[in-house]
Structure formats: structure tokens, C-alpha cells
């Protein structure tokens, strides 16, 4: 009766292969993969919300919070990679915990619009904050690893390996969560909130927890991006198009597995790199057409290509 669940094994093997590959791949590829995985963390959070029927069109809010938390900590002299990621995550958690009291009252497009409005408030503040470099943002000095300063290729690799570790931990944790009672409550809330309340469960509290988890993952993703890129600015971290990109990858990947967001994110980043190189004016055209095809033909995302369709929670 209990099916054999291979997700965690797949995740561990995939992360291990990727981590080892990092030693052989060229620097630009490792850089690109790090960024893709960092954004994959954000998408992993959106997966939790999307399973519940909630679409956050403003998740860049937490991505940006994570990034700016790292940036600000850097100005104060904090450079340790683990401390920085933890800081970005915690900052996002606190923000999401506070906003959660408001946003958990909303569903469907109201949820999407309010999350978008929140993210645009942050954008509006950052753009006008000269201390933080306004639209130009500011540079972030590279992180240190347990006090060790790395440079060049080893820095890129260091960032990458830390990211891989985090991806594994996050994937493992989220998978456990999705298999739990509260994880399964997603489908209940999506289908019928009245019944969930009459089962004695607070819909708002369940959503609040999911929102905070999603924000934590986005904060971690933002923190990594900021460190890897070495620069933060409002347009690439907080604008609504950034959130739109996360939503896009969520739909692209599908919600079938915790591995899907990372796969989707890597595919996205690869296609973008090449599309920019060869057909700079049709990049969004490709994105849009893909999104349409997905919605019309493959509503469960890329991941559904790997699994045989079956009814399950």
C-alpha cells in the first residue's frame, strides 16, 4: 500500500552528480548553474504555494530581501557564506511572518495582486534610496568560507558547492513537508476550504506557514544570487518582471516533484543564455510561446514528461 518513494534518492544522486561536475565544468557554466539553482530555490517555494492554488506574482519581494540583507551585512563587514545565507533567509522569514497575517486572507488574483503590490512597495523604496545606490544598487564583496578567502575559479566553485548543499537540504526538507499531513493539506485548501475548516484545521494558519516557507527559500535564493553576482539592484531583484520569471519557471517545471524546480530553472537559464546570444530580440517571444504551450498542452509542466500520469495527492 505504501508506495516506494524514490524522490529523495533521485535528489541526492542528482545533487551529487552536479556537485562533482562542478570540478570539471568551465567557470562560466558553474556560475550559470549556481544562479540557476539559487533561483530554483525560489521556485521551490512557489511550488508549495502553487500546489495550494496560490500564485504569488510578487515573490521577488523575498528574493530581493534576501539579496539586500546580504548586501547590507556586507557593508557592516559580515562575510561568512553560511552566516550571510542564514541572514537573508531569516530576514525574509520575519518579513513573511508579518505580511502573512494580511495576505493569508486573500486568494486567487487578490493574492497575486497583493503580493505584487508588496513587492512593488519594496521596489519603490529601493529605487528612491540613495544610501543604497537607488536604481544602480551597489556591489557586494565576495563571501568567505569559514574564514578562508577564495578567489577566481575556487570562489565560483565554493559558492557552487555551498549552493548544491543547500539545494539538497531544501529539497529534502520540502519533500518531507509535502508528504506530511500539512503538506497534503494543500490539495484540501485548493479544492475546498470549507471542508478543511470543518476538519478542524485553520486554513489561514496552514497558508501562513506555507507562505513563510516559500519566503525563506526565496530569501536564501536571493542571498546566494547577491553573493554570486556580486551586485544587487532593484530592477534585477524586486521588479514585477522578476516575479513573473519565477512564476514562469514554476509553471514550466510543474509541481510534480521537488526536483522539478531545479530542473526547470536550469533549462530556463540555459535557454536564456543561448537565446540572448543568438536571437536577442526573440527571447521573450520564445518564453511566451513556451508558456502558452505549457498551459494548453502540458499543464503539469516539464516534470510530467518523466512521470506516468496517475491520480495522487
Amino acid at each position: 500500500m505504501i508506495e516506494k518513494d524514490k524522490t529523495l534518492r533521485t535528489l541526492a544522486i542528482a545533487v551529487a552528480i552536479f556537485a562533482v561536475a562542478g570540478f570539471f565544468l568551465p567557470q562560466w557554466a558553474v556560475f550559470m548553474l549556481t544562479l540557476a539553482l539559487a533561483k530554483g530555490l525560489v521556485v521551490l517555494g512557489l511550488l508549495i504555494l502553487w500546489r495550494t492554488g496560490l500564485l504569488s506574482f510578487g515573490h521577488a519581494l523575498f528574493y530581493c530581501t534576501g539579496g539586500y540583507a546580504v548586501g547590507l551585512a556586507g557593508l557592516w563587514g559580515l562575510t561568512d557564506v553560511v552566516a550571510l545565507i542564514a541572514l537573508g533567509t531569516v530576514a525574509s522569514i520575519l518579513l513573511a511572518f508579518a505580511l502573512g497575517f494580511l495576505i493569508t486572507r486573500y486568494r486567487e488574483i487578490y493574492f497575486a495582486m497583493l503580493s505584487m503590490a508588496f513587492s512593488m512597495i519594496l521596489y519603490g523604496v529601493l529605487v528612491k534610496s540613495e544610501v543604497l545606490g537607488s536604481t544602480d544598487g551597489f556591489n557586494i564583496s565576495p563571501p568567505t568560507f569559514l574564514g578562508v578567502k577564495l578567489e577566481g575559479e575556487s570562489l565560483t566553485l565554493g559558492n557552487y558547492l555551498v549552493t548544491c548543499l543547500l539545494v539538497w537540504a531544501a529539497g529534502w526538507g520540502v519533500h518531507r513537508y509535502l508528504q506530511s499531513t500539512m503538506g497534503h493539506m494543500s490539495i484540501g485548501i485548493r479544492d475546498n476550504e470549507i471542508r478543511v475548516e470543518y476538519l478542524g484545521v485553520s486554513v489561514r494558519r496552514v497558508i501562513h506557514v506555507k507562505y513563510v516557507i516559500a519566503a525563506a527559500l526565496a530569501g536564501a535564493g536571493g542571498a546566494i544570487s547577491a553573493m554570486v553576482v556580486g551586485h544587487i539592484d532593484p530592477d534585477s531583484m524586486a521588479y514585477w518582471t522578476v516575479s513573473g520569471e519565477f512564476v514562469f519557471v514554476t509553471i514550466l517545471a510543474g509541481t510534480g516533484s521537488v526536483v522539478a524546480p531545479f530542473l526547470g530553472s536550469i533549462v530556463f537559464e540555459l535557454v536564456r543564455t543561448y537565446a540572448f546570444q543568438y536571437t536577442p530580440y526573440t527571447w521573450q517571444l520564445i518564453l511566451g510561446s513556451t508558456l502558452l504551450l505549457l498551459i494548453l498542452i502540458l499543464p503539469d509542466g516539464l516534470w510530467s514528461l518523466f512521470t506516468r500520469r496517475k491520480a495522487r495527492v
Binding site: 497534503h184 490539495i187 484540501g188 485548493r190 479544492d191 475546498n192 470549507i194 471542508r195 470543518y198 491520480a311 495522487r312 495527492v313
Partner: peptide, 11 residues
């Protein structure tokens, strides 16, 4: 009936 329409009876 208020049930979770997209889930199986067992679920």
C-alpha cells in the same frame, strides 16, 4: 457534499 474533488476517495 464538500469533498476534495481532485483527490481520490482514499486520499
Amino acid at each position: 457534499p464538500q469533498v476534495f474533488t481532485s483527490a481520490s476517495v482514499a486520499d
